[in-house]
Design a protein around this nucleic acid. Structure first.
Lengths: 187, 187
DNA sequence: TTCAAATTAGAGTCAATACTCAAATATCAG
DNA sequence: CTGATATTTGAGTATTGACTCTAATTTGAA
């Protein structure tokens, strides 16, 4: 293979970018930090990427893809499966989970760049959850499944956000609790 | 009053800082942006604050204080009241709500500066919620009220996070739903 | 082994950043 | 009105950021 070295360097860069974005955020990540962690120099970076943005975007795509596994099961998955998949993502994909949460927040302010992407992704997730609820509860109106899906997806993100700050936080227990308990107390 | 002008300038700076932090984040906020929005020059800024960090911290404190109103009601508030207070905060305090959510994420990475502060604040909120649940459900074990409070506070933050990105998101409906529905579908 | 293409090195550019400081101006007590 | 003090000005410093470019080095096909 002709371009092997270049591709290996590219992988090292992406790995370093993922780690830095997880730790410092989409904007807080610097070329120097990426290069230091990847063990290369800026010149090499710019042989393989046109800009910092390009590397960051690649990592953002990785994170988004990792959240929604098996898009082929789209029309058949159960709500419990979707929740378990999210639990697994958050607990086993440390850096990518951090990137994902960083991303969710990048849509907050001026950052129009990512905002559309984040919103589209969120819509997709909500409708997947909504379909699963509808399949399990055919008597429920669509507006109602939609509403519950929106609440659930947002709540799960809140749980992920907290876990990312506190590694001892038990994502599984809290996420599953959302499915079975109303939080006021009556089970 | 002798130092009136200075105090007014200080207020303008804090207002501008709040707006910028809400839009660009704790780190993304620049002195220039603050000064432009406040209609002053950097020299004036440094007459009233020792550093950018100091102004940002002042705003962060405002946000934290605004989330937990009436600390005197501490031992008597109901869960519904706490949730309604949070709904009101998110829906009526636009910029401060954005600052609050920004803050929640600043504890994620290297940023040890804010991490402790965020965690302490979160602990306080959870125990306030937990007490309210315990008061309304004396039969419930403390570990259980604690667990539910943790889930609820995290879930509410997730809802706030989404609302901050999408102004049409109906915080009230979704937050109240957490209290009454298990999200799997059975009401 | 050779040589052209692929890859890396590392110094250098330009803009933006946080922060400083001496001089100019506004304010107000006496 | 006057002078001391509070306040603002705006140009300046040192640092760090993303990104560029040319020369050196490595690689692999012939």
């Amino acid at each position: 293979m002709r371009y092997k070295a270049g591709l290996e360097t590219r992988d090292k860069i992406l790995e370093a970018t993922r780690s830095r974005v997880a730790a410092a955020g989409l904007d807080g990540t610097t070329i120097k930090a990426i290069c230091d962690e990847a063990g290369i120099l800026p010149g090499s970076f710019y042989n393989l990427f046109d800009s910092k943005e390009e590397a960051v975007l690649a990592v953002v795509r990785q994170a988004i893809d990792a959240v929604d596994p098996d898009p082929d099961h789209q029309g058949t998955d159960t709500l419990a499966e979707l929740v378990e998949a999210y639990i697994a993502f958050i607990t086993t994909q440390g850096d990518l989970a951090r990137v994902y949460i960083r991303l969710a927040l990048s849509g907050v302010g001026d950052n129009a760049e990512f905002k559309g992407r984040v919103m589209r992704h969120h819509q997709g997730r909500v409708s997947r959850f909504s379909s699963a609820i509808g399949r399990e509860h055919p008597e429920m109106a669509e507006a109602e499944t939609q509403r519950r899906a929106e609440t659930l997806v947002s709540a799960l993100n809140g749980i992920a956000l907290h876990r990312v700050m506190d590694p001892d936080f038990d994502v599984a227990v809290h996420a599953r609790g959302l499915l079975t308990d109303a939080l006021t107390g009556v089970s």
